[in-house]
Design a protein around this nucleic acid. Structure first.
Length: 309
DNA sequence: AATATTGCCAACCGCCTGTCG
DNA sequence: TCGACAGGCGGTTGGCAATAT
Protein backbone atom coordinates (compact mmCIF):
# COMPACT_ATOMS: atom_id res chain seq x y z
CA UNK A 1 0.00 0.00 0.00
CA UNK A 2 1.28 3.39 -0.88
CA UNK A 3 4.18 2.10 -2.87
CA UNK A 4 3.82 2.43 -6.57
CA UNK A 5 4.78 -0.33 -8.86
CA UNK A 6 7.97 1.43 -9.78
CA UNK A 7 9.02 1.33 -6.17
CA UNK A 8 8.59 -2.40 -5.86
CA UNK A 9 10.42 -3.55 -8.92
CA UNK A 10 13.83 -2.90 -7.51
CA UNK A 11 15.60 -1.98 -4.36
CA UNK A 12 15.30 1.76 -4.06
CA UNK A 13 17.16 4.19 -1.93
CA UNK A 14 15.31 6.27 0.61
CA UNK A 15 16.11 9.23 2.77
CA UNK A 16 17.93 12.40 1.98
CA UNK A 17 19.16 13.03 -1.50
CA UNK A 18 22.85 13.39 -2.15
CA UNK A 19 24.25 16.19 -4.32
CA UNK A 20 25.20 13.55 -6.90
CA UNK A 21 21.63 12.31 -7.08
CA UNK A 22 20.35 15.84 -7.40
CA UNK A 23 22.73 16.47 -10.25
CA UNK A 24 21.61 13.35 -12.08
CA UNK A 25 17.99 14.29 -11.74
CA UNK A 26 18.56 17.88 -12.80
CA UNK A 27 20.62 16.84 -15.79
CA UNK A 28 18.05 14.35 -16.94
CA UNK A 29 14.98 16.55 -16.55
CA UNK A 30 16.77 19.54 -18.04
CA UNK A 31 17.56 17.47 -21.11
CA UNK A 32 14.49 15.34 -21.55
CA UNK A 33 11.80 16.58 -19.22
CA UNK A 34 10.31 14.25 -16.69
CA UNK A 35 7.78 12.52 -18.92
CA UNK A 36 6.55 9.49 -17.05
CA UNK A 37 7.94 9.77 -13.56
CA UNK A 38 8.08 6.04 -13.07
CA UNK A 39 10.67 5.78 -15.82
CA UNK A 40 12.75 8.74 -14.70
CA UNK A 41 14.92 6.94 -12.13
CA UNK A 42 15.89 4.22 -14.60
CA UNK A 43 16.66 6.66 -17.38
CA UNK A 44 18.45 9.06 -15.08
CA UNK A 45 20.48 6.33 -13.42
CA UNK A 46 18.97 6.76 -9.99
CA UNK A 47 18.19 4.11 -7.40
CA UNK A 48 15.03 5.91 -6.42
CA UNK A 49 11.37 5.39 -7.11
CA UNK A 50 9.62 7.71 -9.53
CA UNK A 51 7.53 9.16 -6.82
CA UNK A 52 10.58 10.17 -4.85
CA UNK A 53 12.10 11.76 -7.97
CA UNK A 54 8.94 13.69 -8.62
CA UNK A 55 8.81 14.97 -5.06
CA UNK A 56 12.47 15.93 -5.07
CA UNK A 57 12.06 17.86 -8.29
CA UNK A 58 8.84 19.62 -7.36
CA UNK A 59 9.81 20.53 -3.83
CA UNK A 60 13.48 21.25 -4.15
CA UNK A 61 15.13 21.15 -7.55
CA UNK A 62 12.69 23.03 -9.74
CA UNK A 63 14.42 26.15 -11.04
CA UNK A 64 11.48 28.43 -10.37
CA UNK A 65 11.40 27.86 -6.64
CA UNK A 66 11.81 30.91 -4.50
CA UNK A 67 13.31 29.36 -1.36
CA UNK A 68 14.15 31.47 1.63
CA UNK A 69 11.90 32.56 4.43
CA UNK A 70 8.37 33.73 3.91
CA UNK A 71 7.70 37.43 3.80
CA UNK A 72 5.05 38.95 6.05
CA UNK A 73 2.95 39.50 2.94
CA UNK A 74 3.21 35.85 2.02
CA UNK A 75 2.36 34.86 5.57
CA UNK A 76 -0.67 37.09 5.51
CA UNK A 77 -1.81 35.65 2.23
CA UNK A 78 -1.35 32.11 3.50
CA UNK A 79 -3.46 32.84 6.54
CA UNK A 80 -6.15 34.46 4.48
CA UNK A 81 -6.20 31.62 1.98
CA UNK A 82 -6.15 29.06 4.74
CA UNK A 83 -9.18 30.68 6.25
CA UNK A 84 -10.93 30.29 2.92
CA UNK A 85 -9.56 26.99 1.72
CA UNK A 86 -8.59 25.14 4.86
CA UNK A 87 -5.76 22.65 4.62
CA UNK A 88 -5.76 22.59 0.86
CA UNK A 89 -2.08 23.34 0.67
CA UNK A 90 -1.72 22.74 -3.01
CA UNK A 91 -4.46 25.27 -3.74
CA UNK A 92 -2.90 27.76 -1.36
CA UNK A 93 0.54 27.28 -2.86
CA UNK A 94 -0.77 28.06 -6.33
CA UNK A 95 -1.27 31.62 -5.20
CA UNK A 96 2.30 31.91 -3.94
CA UNK A 97 4.68 31.87 -6.89
CA UNK A 98 7.80 29.89 -6.20
CA UNK A 99 6.36 28.17 -3.15
CA UNK A 100 5.37 24.55 -2.89
CA UNK A 101 2.51 22.98 -1.04
CA UNK A 102 4.99 21.21 1.20
CA UNK A 103 6.71 24.46 2.00
CA UNK A 104 3.45 26.22 2.79
CA UNK A 105 2.27 23.32 4.89
CA UNK A 106 5.51 23.20 6.87
CA UNK A 107 5.43 26.93 7.35
CA UNK A 108 1.89 26.79 8.60
CA UNK A 109 2.48 23.91 10.99
CA UNK A 110 5.78 25.13 12.34
CA UNK A 111 5.22 28.83 12.53
CA UNK A 112 1.87 30.40 11.82
CA UNK A 113 -0.29 27.92 13.64
CA UNK A 114 1.65 28.19 16.86
CA UNK A 115 1.73 31.96 16.71
CA UNK A 116 -1.97 32.27 16.16
CA UNK A 117 -2.80 29.76 18.86
CA UNK A 118 -0.46 31.39 21.33
CA UNK A 119 -2.20 34.68 20.68
CA UNK A 120 -5.61 33.24 21.19
CA UNK A 121 -6.65 33.32 17.57
CA UNK A 122 -8.84 30.34 16.73
CA UNK A 123 -8.32 28.27 13.66
CA UNK A 124 -10.24 30.36 11.22
CA UNK A 125 -10.87 27.48 8.87
CA UNK A 126 -12.60 25.43 11.53
CA UNK A 127 -14.25 28.11 13.52
CA UNK A 128 -17.63 27.03 14.88
CA UNK A 129 -20.68 27.75 12.86
CA UNK A 130 -22.85 30.75 13.10
CA UNK A 131 -26.48 29.89 12.48
CA UNK A 132 -27.33 33.18 10.89
CA UNK A 133 -26.02 36.67 10.61
CA UNK A 134 -28.29 37.81 13.38
CA UNK A 135 -26.72 35.43 15.84
CA UNK A 136 -25.54 36.64 19.17
CA UNK A 137 -22.30 38.55 19.34
CA UNK A 138 -20.73 35.56 21.05
CA UNK A 139 -21.33 33.61 17.91
CA UNK A 140 -19.12 35.91 15.97
CA UNK A 141 -15.41 35.86 15.96
CA UNK A 142 -14.60 38.69 18.25
CA UNK A 143 -11.12 40.09 18.43
CA UNK A 144 -12.06 42.52 21.09
CA UNK A 145 -9.98 42.37 24.20
CA UNK A 146 -6.79 41.28 22.55
CA UNK A 147 -4.74 44.42 22.13
CA UNK A 148 -2.12 42.56 20.18
CA UNK A 149 -4.48 41.93 17.34
CA UNK A 150 -5.98 45.27 16.53
CA UNK A 151 -3.76 48.25 16.90
CA UNK A 152 -6.76 50.47 17.08
CA UNK A 153 -6.74 53.44 19.35
CA UNK A 154 -10.48 53.29 19.43
CA UNK A 155 -12.69 50.99 21.35
CA UNK A 156 -13.88 49.13 18.34
CA UNK A 157 -14.98 45.60 17.95
CA UNK A 158 -14.45 43.62 14.84
CA UNK A 159 -16.63 40.66 14.14
CA UNK A 160 -15.79 38.30 11.39
CA UNK A 161 -18.19 35.79 9.95
CA UNK A 162 -17.81 32.09 10.17
CA UNK A 163 -17.04 30.50 6.84
CA UNK A 164 -18.25 27.06 7.67
CA UNK A 165 -21.81 27.95 8.51
CA UNK A 166 -22.20 29.53 5.15
CA UNK A 167 -20.70 26.56 3.43
CA UNK A 168 -23.60 24.51 4.62
CA UNK A 169 -26.31 26.90 3.70
CA UNK A 170 -26.98 25.66 0.23
CA UNK A 171 -26.30 28.64 -1.93
CA UNK A 172 -26.87 27.80 -5.55
CA UNK A 173 -23.42 28.13 -6.96
CA UNK A 174 -24.54 27.16 -10.44
CA UNK A 175 -26.08 30.55 -10.91
CA UNK A 176 -22.83 32.36 -10.46
CA UNK A 177 -19.70 32.75 -12.36
CA UNK A 178 -16.85 33.62 -10.13
CA UNK A 179 -14.31 35.97 -11.50
CA UNK A 180 -11.19 37.23 -9.93
CA UNK A 181 -10.83 40.45 -11.71
CA UNK A 182 -7.51 41.99 -12.42
CA UNK A 183 -8.98 45.39 -12.16
CA UNK A 184 -7.97 48.96 -12.12
CA UNK A 185 -8.72 49.52 -8.50
CA UNK A 186 -10.99 52.38 -7.75
CA UNK A 187 -9.64 55.24 -5.75
CA UNK A 188 -10.20 54.70 -2.11
CA UNK A 189 -13.79 55.75 -1.69
CA UNK A 190 -14.90 58.02 1.06
CA UNK A 191 -16.12 56.20 4.06
CA UNK A 192 -19.78 55.46 3.86
CA UNK A 193 -22.02 56.94 6.43
CA UNK A 194 -21.72 54.58 9.38
CA UNK A 195 -25.45 54.61 9.73
CA UNK A 196 -25.68 52.93 6.35
CA UNK A 197 -23.85 49.88 7.59
CA UNK A 198 -25.89 46.77 7.57
CA UNK A 199 -25.43 45.52 11.12
CA UNK A 200 -25.85 41.97 9.94
CA UNK A 201 -23.32 42.26 7.20
CA UNK A 202 -19.81 42.35 8.54
CA UNK A 203 -18.09 42.36 5.20
CA UNK A 204 -17.28 45.54 3.47
CA UNK A 205 -19.34 46.59 0.53
CA UNK A 206 -18.22 48.98 -2.09
CA UNK A 207 -20.64 51.85 -2.00
CA UNK A 208 -20.38 52.49 -5.73
CA UNK A 209 -21.05 49.02 -7.01
CA UNK A 210 -24.33 48.14 -8.50
CA UNK A 211 -26.43 45.17 -7.66
CA UNK A 212 -24.48 42.79 -9.78
CA UNK A 213 -21.17 43.53 -8.23
CA UNK A 214 -20.01 42.32 -4.90
CA UNK A 215 -16.84 42.75 -3.06
CA UNK A 216 -15.67 40.45 -0.37
CA UNK A 217 -13.46 42.23 2.03
CA UNK A 218 -12.22 45.71 1.68
CA UNK A 219 -12.51 47.43 -1.65
CA UNK A 220 -8.97 48.68 -1.26
CA UNK A 221 -7.74 45.45 0.21
CA UNK A 222 -5.46 43.02 -1.50
CA UNK A 223 -8.07 40.41 -2.29
CA UNK A 224 -10.75 41.54 -4.62
CA UNK A 225 -13.41 39.15 -5.67
CA UNK A 226 -16.12 40.09 -8.05
CA UNK A 227 -19.02 37.91 -8.99
CA UNK A 228 -21.49 38.24 -11.76
CA UNK A 229 -24.67 36.30 -12.29
CA UNK A 230 -24.55 34.21 -15.42
CA UNK A 231 -28.13 33.09 -15.27
CA UNK A 232 -30.25 36.06 -16.35
CA UNK A 233 -33.31 34.51 -14.78
CA UNK A 234 -31.71 34.29 -11.42
CA UNK A 235 -32.74 37.03 -9.11
CA UNK A 236 -30.02 38.40 -6.96
CA UNK A 237 -30.78 39.32 -3.43
CA UNK A 238 -30.62 42.92 -2.54
CA UNK A 239 -27.25 44.41 -2.03
CA UNK A 240 -27.33 44.68 1.71
CA UNK A 241 -29.36 41.62 2.36
CA UNK A 242 -27.92 39.19 4.88
CA UNK A 243 -29.09 36.48 2.54
CA UNK A 244 -26.07 37.28 0.48
CA UNK A 245 -23.90 35.85 3.17
CA UNK A 246 -24.27 32.22 2.16
CA UNK A 247 -22.73 32.81 -1.20
CA UNK A 248 -19.34 33.89 -0.07
CA UNK A 249 -17.70 30.68 1.03
CA UNK A 250 -19.27 28.80 -1.84
CA UNK A 251 -17.59 31.19 -4.15
CA UNK A 252 -14.42 30.88 -2.20
CA UNK A 253 -14.51 27.15 -2.68
CA UNK A 254 -14.09 27.63 -6.37
CA UNK A 255 -10.75 29.34 -6.05
CA UNK A 256 -8.33 27.55 -8.25
CA UNK A 257 -4.89 28.01 -9.61
CA UNK A 258 -6.31 29.85 -12.55
CA UNK A 259 -7.89 32.50 -10.45
CA UNK A 260 -6.02 35.56 -9.52
CA UNK A 261 -5.67 36.83 -6.06
CA UNK A 262 -3.73 39.99 -6.09
CA UNK A 263 -1.16 40.73 -3.46
CA UNK A 264 -1.35 44.18 -2.03
CA UNK A 265 1.95 45.03 -3.71
CA UNK A 266 0.24 44.82 -7.08
CA UNK A 267 -2.00 47.72 -6.30
CA UNK A 268 -0.89 50.91 -7.91
CA UNK A 269 -2.30 53.03 -5.17
CA UNK A 270 -1.61 53.11 -1.52
CA UNK A 271 -3.57 50.68 0.49
CA UNK A 272 -5.36 52.66 3.07
CA UNK A 273 -4.77 51.61 6.62
CA UNK A 274 -8.06 49.92 7.42
CA UNK A 275 -7.82 50.83 11.03
CA UNK A 276 -7.27 54.46 10.29
CA UNK A 277 -10.43 54.37 8.21
CA UNK A 278 -12.61 53.19 11.02
CA UNK A 279 -15.51 55.51 11.43
CA UNK A 280 -16.35 56.93 14.77
CA UNK A 281 -19.65 55.65 15.88
CA UNK A 282 -21.85 57.22 18.45
CA UNK A 283 -21.92 55.37 21.69
CA UNK A 284 -24.87 53.13 22.19
CA UNK A 285 -25.02 52.07 18.58
CA UNK A 286 -25.68 48.56 17.45
CA UNK A 287 -23.91 46.08 19.72
CA UNK A 288 -22.24 44.53 16.72
CA UNK A 289 -21.19 47.81 15.29
CA UNK A 290 -19.07 48.93 13.76
CA UNK A 291 -18.88 46.39 11.01
CA UNK A 292 -15.92 47.97 9.47
CA UNK A 293 -14.95 47.61 5.86
CA UNK A 294 -11.71 45.93 6.78
CA UNK A 295 -10.49 42.99 4.84
CA UNK A 296 -9.42 39.86 6.58
CA UNK A 297 -6.17 40.23 4.78
CA UNK A 298 -5.40 43.60 6.24
CA UNK A 299 -6.37 42.39 9.62
CA UNK A 300 -4.14 39.36 9.33
CA UNK A 301 -1.29 41.54 8.18
CA UNK A 302 -1.77 43.60 11.29
CA UNK A 303 -1.63 40.46 13.35
CA UNK A 304 1.51 39.22 11.71
CA UNK A 305 3.30 42.50 12.03
CA UNK A 306 2.38 42.73 15.69
CA UNK A 307 3.57 39.26 16.58
CA UNK A 308 6.95 38.81 18.17
CA UNK A 309 9.28 36.89 15.97
C1' DA B 1 31.17 20.81 27.94
C1' DA B 2 27.69 17.45 27.76
C1' DT B 3 23.11 16.26 27.39
C1' DA B 4 18.22 17.11 26.63
C1' DT B 5 14.77 19.49 24.32
C1' DT B 6 12.74 21.94 20.64
C1' DG B 7 11.86 23.45 15.99
C1' DC B 8 12.34 23.05 11.22
C1' DC B 9 11.74 20.83 7.03
C1' DA B 10 12.83 17.19 3.61
C1' DA B 11 11.01 13.04 2.65
C1' DC B 12 7.91 9.33 3.09
C1' DC B 13 3.28 7.10 3.64
C1' DG B 14 -1.27 6.14 2.53
C1' DC B 15 -5.07 7.43 0.13
C1' DC B 16 -7.74 9.42 -3.68
C1' DT B 17 -8.60 10.47 -8.45
C1' DG B 18 -8.09 10.38 -13.33
C1' DT B 19 -6.66 7.88 -17.36
C1' DC B 20 -6.16 4.09 -20.26
C1' DG B 21 -6.50 -0.48 -22.11
C1' DT C 1 -17.32 -1.77 -16.40
C1' DC C 2 -13.20 -2.96 -14.26
C1' DG C 3 -8.49 -3.19 -12.90
C1' DA C 4 -3.85 -1.39 -13.27
C1' DC C 5 -1.21 2.39 -13.08
C1' DA C 6 0.56 7.15 -12.44
C1' DG C 7 0.01 11.60 -10.62
C1' DG C 8 -1.25 14.30 -6.92
C1' DC C 9 -2.50 15.47 -2.29
C1' DG C 10 -2.52 15.97 2.89
C1' DG C 11 -0.80 13.89 7.07
C1' DT C 12 3.05 12.27 9.38
C1' DT C 13 7.73 10.99 10.45
C1' DG C 14 12.58 11.26 11.25
C1' DG C 15 16.96 13.51 10.97
C1' DC C 16 19.47 17.43 11.85
C1' DA C 17 20.61 21.90 13.78
C1' DA C 18 19.77 25.25 17.17
C1' DT C 19 18.75 26.24 21.72
C1' DA C 20 18.07 25.32 26.57
C1' DT C 21 19.42 23.14 30.79
Amino acid sequence: MGHHSCCNKQKVKRGLWSPEEDEKLINYISSYGHGCWSSVPRLAGLQRCGKSCRLRWINYLRPDLKRGSFSPQEAALIIELHRILGNRWAQIAKHLPGRTDNEVKNFWNSSIKKKLVSHGVPDLATFPDIPNPNASPEAFFSLNGNPNLIPSPQDHQLYLPSPTSMLQSGFDLANYNLEFVHFQPPPAPPLPDPSSYDPTWPWGCHPHLNQEDYVLGNEVGPIYIETKPINPNFSLPSFNSPSMAPMMPKLSETISGNDRILPSSSFPHEVVDPVARLPSLPSGSHPHAPHVPISHFDYIEAIISSLPS
